Simulated assay, not measured.
Amino acid sequence: MLVALEGIDGAGKTTQLHLLEERARRQGLRVASLSFPRYTETVFGRCVAAYLRGEFGPLAEVPPRSAALLFAGDRLESLELLSRLAAESDLLLLDRYVASNLAHQGARLAVSERDAFLAWLAHLEYEVFGLPRPTLTLYLRLPVAVASSLLATRAQQRRSGARDLHEENAAYLARCAEVYEQLASAHADGPWEIVSCVDEKERLRSPEEIQVQVWSLLERYRTV
């Protein structure tokens, strides 16, 4: 199984990936994981890091297609590793995948332009570059207001002072959420399942509580 964890910044994708890894290994599964972008491992990953630091200019000045090619190129450079891990493992977990590129760059376009852009980018990554489609995409849904608060705390805790143009812009984060909802409802690149990160009163659920639901969904697709 190739399982992609998706969601806006602050949704807890990395935390859920680690919890899934631990539980899957306890179940005796061969597990591997990758996190995209691979900021230091690929040429394109290093370009992505520079872009997010603002070295290519403000977010509005970098064309969405240009930025999308950086993220897609990082996965293309990683394709041999991705394919090997998939062949060697029962479960390959991905912290962000193609849908992240679709959401983050699609969010920068007018609604009237999004569908054509999303179709172009999905075709590029899956058909031209030959990336494997996920067996399952788990979308961790988090309200934008909650995410913004969590990201503000994260920024204050950073010792390096590193910037991330995507995280700094709350309006942009809201548009990313819109595109994620569109992708989830359309099952853009295979089966999608939505996991709410908050309860009915919009209080954050614990990572452990979320993980129980995530594992249940994963088990359902393992038996299909």
Results as ranks from 00 to 15, higher is better:
144 V>Q: 06
145 A>Y: 00
145 A>N: 00
145 A>M: 02
145 A>K: 00
145 A>H: 02
145 A>T: 04
146 V>C: 04
147 A>W: 08
147 A>S: 15
148 S>T: 13
148 S>D: 07
148 S>P: 02
148 S>W: 13
149 S>M: 05
149 S>A: 08
149 S>G: 12
150 L>D: 04
151 L>S: 01
151 L>M: 05
151 L>Y: 03
151 L>E: 02
151 L>V: 00
152 A>E: 06
153 T>A: 12
153 T>L: 13
153 T>I: 08
153 T>P: 00
154 R>C: 09
154 R>D: 10
154 R>M: 11
155 A>M: 12
155 A>I: 07
156 Q>A: 14
156 Q>L: 11
156 Q>C: 08
156 Q>Y: 01
157 Q>D: 11
157 Q>M: 10
157 Q>S: 13
157 Q>I: 01
157 Q>T: 04
157 Q>E: 14
158 R>F: 07
158 R>C: 10
158 R>G: 12
158 R>N: 09
159 R>I: 10
159 R>D: 10
159 R>V: 10
160 S>Q: 12
161 G>E: 06
161 G>C: 04
161 G>S: 06
161 G>I: 07
162 A>C: 02
162 A>K: 04
162 A>T: 07
162 A>P: 02
162 A>D: 11
163 R>K: 14
163 R>G: 01
164 D>W: 00
164 D>G: 03
165 L>T: 04
166 H>Q: 05
167 E>L: 02
167 E>K: 02
167 E>I: 00
168 E>P: 00
168 E>S: 10
168 E>K: 07
169 N>Y: 00
169 N>I: 02
169 N>Q: 05
170 A>I: 04
170 A>P: 15
171 A>L: 07
171 A>K: 02
171 A>F: 01
171 A>V: 06
171 A>E: 14
172 Y>H: 15
172 Y>I: 09
172 Y>R: 06
173 L>Y: 03
173 L>P: 00
174 A>R: 13
174 A>T: 05
174 A>L: 03
174 A>F: 01
176 C>S: 05
176 C>N: 05
176 C>G: 00
176 C>T: 09
177 A>Q: 14
177 A>N: 14
177 A>T: 10
177 A>W: 13
177 A>V: 05
177 A>P: 08
178 E>V: 11
179 V>Y: 09
179 V>S: 08
180 Y>W: 13
180 Y>E: 11
180 Y>N: 10
181 E>T: 12
181 E>Y: 05
181 E>C: 07
182 Q>A: 02
182 Q>M: 05
182 Q>K: 00
183 L>K: 03
183 L>Y: 04
183 L>Q: 05
183 L>S: 07
184 A>S: 03
185 S>W: 06
185 S>L: 15
185 S>Y: 03
186 A>G: 04
186 A>I: 10
186 A>N: 07
186 A>D: 10
186 A>H: 10
187 H>L: 06
187 H>Y: 07
187 H>E: 15
187 H>F: 08
188 A>M: 13
189 D>S: 15
189 D>W: 03
189 D>E: 14
190 G>T: 09
190 G>V: 04
190 G>W: 06
190 G>H: 04
190 G>Y: 11
191 P>E: 06
191 P>T: 11
191 P>R: 13
192 W>A: 06
192 W>G: 06
192 W>C: 04
192 W>E: 08
193 E>S: 14
193 E>P: 10
194 I>D: 05
195 V>H: 13
197 C>R: 06
197 C>T: 11
197 C>G: 09
197 C>H: 08
197 C>E: 01
198 V>D: 02
198 V>C: 11
198 V>N: 11
